[in-house]
Amino acid sequence: MEKSWMPIRIIFFICSRVRIPKEVLVLSKAGNTVSLPPPKKTGILSRYWKYRSLVMLFLPAILYYILFKYLPIFGVQIAFKKYMFRLGIWGSPWVGFENFEKLFAMNSFWEVLRNTFMISGLKLLFGFPAPILLALLLNEIRNVVFKRVVQTISYLPHFLSWVILSGIFIQFLSPSIGPINIFIKAMGGRPIYFLGEEEWFRSVLVITHIWKSVGWGTIVYLAALTGINPEYYEAAYIDGATRWHCARYITLPSLAPVITIMLIFAVGGIIEDDFNQIYNLYSEAVYSVGDVLSTYTYRRGLVKMDYGFASAVDLFKNVIAFVLIVSTNKIANRINDYGIW
């Protein structure tokens, strides 16, 4: 059997193995069944009534969102105001786009924005696939005890704060006493001041970020992996598929729903940065690549208690994130059906 026919064979096989109760097949052929979506012409209210049991399940959520999310949203107006504690949110004076102007007028704004995107982009490029790959590799481990131990250990970095980790990394990456440079020196190379050199700082951020989050990130993918019907694999093996074939044609497609949504969120998060990580690791030597939006605006917003400004920065970030997510979602929908909308 030629290998290139493998994928098609597997897909056919999957389809043939899924058992649809005969009654449903019959009924759907007969036409009017509950499994079909309703015709669009029906009025809104009658649709809600028709599916009322489903709608009722959703009601508590609506209440929750209104009370705890939408109610405070009135506070967004602070971004357009000069917030004074004593006047409250409603009483504080409007200043239009002044807070935003202050933000854009800051001298290093564009540099800082660029840094934010660069760092997040790199983290996305390398950091997004990492947990998926790790999950796949973990999946291949047969010894349950070994697997569980590895998983637990891989979760540990997630729980440590950057305040603590930065101290450890500063020592670890030190050009004079850090193990990495000792190794480099032993190999005859020149020691590299990772945290003090612009060319290296971003890489350090990305690598340490992956190190910290990859283990924890596998959880959701492992959960999805357990939902795959093992019969697919059995049958594939019987037909001579290798582990690689299985991974590529069964495992990955089955992860598609989860991967898609995680990816959409990740892209939307490009405007975000990990304040704690960067704040604890950066220094003057690397400002030009390491200063990001949150480190740059933190003093102004929080320390100087300029909540109007802080709110404007947040709003700016959120609008960008929202636009990114909507766009990515559209693209995702073209490829498969698992977007957010």
């Binding site: 101290g167 500063i170 020592q171 030190s174 004079s176 945290l195 220094s283």
Partner: peptide, 12 residues
Amino acid sequence: DPEFVTGENQGG
């Protein structure tokens, strides 16, 4: 000290 940017104090 070439490592002066990360400071003389290394945590603690």
